[in-house]
Amino acid sequence: MRYFVLILIILVGCEHVAMDYSYPLSVKNNSDHSINLYLNDNENFVSIYPDTIISNFSERISQQILSKETRYIAGGSANWESIFRVSVPSDTLSIFVIHYDSLNKYSWDEIRNNYEVLKRFDFSLQDLEHINYLIEYPASSSMSEIKQFPKYEE
């Protein structure tokens, strides 16, 4: 009986581990300089699109992403459909690409007021699914249909 209980605990534990999924959002920096990404939201982690002004929450900046590096920047155990349902009421999440040097050269207010960004992507859930949750900067041809500013150029 003890062995049966032990085997049952192991099997239930393994099933739990198998159901623990991860939903990462990553960025691949194909440029020749370091960048950071910024997810534009308000103090409650809710997307503020269609307002594309950069919000006041500079702590939402990703870690430095080196040239030619791919890095995980967001996501986790909650799937993106749930994240969009709760935190992205307009069905669009704006993500800004900022030159790493700009973060060292300018204050956050200067970055905001002068729109010191290299690119802004406006992603729907379908856009993220289409690119398999991998943002490329500069944008690859697979991202050409995604709303971005400045517009995509080959």
Score class of each variant (00 low, 15 high):
R2L: 12
R2I: 01
Y3N: 11
F4T: 09
V5G: 13
I7R: 11
I10H: 03
I10R: 00
I10C: 12
V12Q: 00
G13H: 10
C14D: 10
C14Q: 12
E15V: 02
E15C: 09
H16G: 15
H16T: 13
A18T: 06
A18S: 14
M19E: 15
M19F: 12
M19Y: 14
M19S: 14
Y21C: 08
Y23E: 01
Y23G: 09
P24R: 11
P24K: 09
L25G: 04
L25A: 01
S26N: 03
S26L: 03
S26V: 02
K28E: 06
K28H: 09
N29V: 03
S31N: 08
D32R: 14
I35Q: 04
Y38L: 01
D41Q: 14
F45A: 14
F45C: 13
F45Y: 15
V46D: 03
S47L: 05
Y49S: 14
P50A: 12
I53T: 15
I53Y: 12
I54S: 05
I54D: 05
I54E: 06
S55K: 00
F57S: 01
S58K: 04
S58L: 04
S58D: 15
E59V: 13
E59G: 11
R60K: 11
S62R: 04
Q64C: 09
Q64T: 15
L66Y: 09
S67Q: 13
K68G: 09
Y72G: 02
A74P: 13
A78Q: 14
A78S: 15
A78E: 15
W80G: 13
W80D: 09
W80L: 09
W80E: 05
S82W: 11
I83S: 07
F84T: 00
R85M: 06
R85H: 07
S87F: 07
S87T: 06
S87V: 00
P89C: 04
S90D: 13
S90V: 01
T92R: 14
L93W: 06
L93P: 01
S94G: 08
F96E: 03
F96M: 11
V97Y: 01
Y100T: 02
D101G: 06
S102N: 15
N104Q: 10
N104S: 13
N104V: 03
N104K: 08
K105H: 07
S107N: 11
S107I: 05
W108I: 07
W108C: 04
D109S: 12
D109P: 02
E110N: 12
I111S: 02
I111H: 01
R112M: 09
N113V: 03
Y115I: 04
V117N: 01
L118N: 01
D122W: 10
L125I: 14
D127A: 08
E129Y: 09
E129N: 13
I131L: 08
I135H: 08
I135G: 02
Y137A: 07
S141R: 10
S142H: 08
M143D: 07
M143H: 00
S144R: 05
E145W: 09
I146P: 06
I146K: 08
K147P: 01
Q148L: 02
P150C: 01
E153Q: 10
E154T: 12
E154Q: 11
E154A: 12
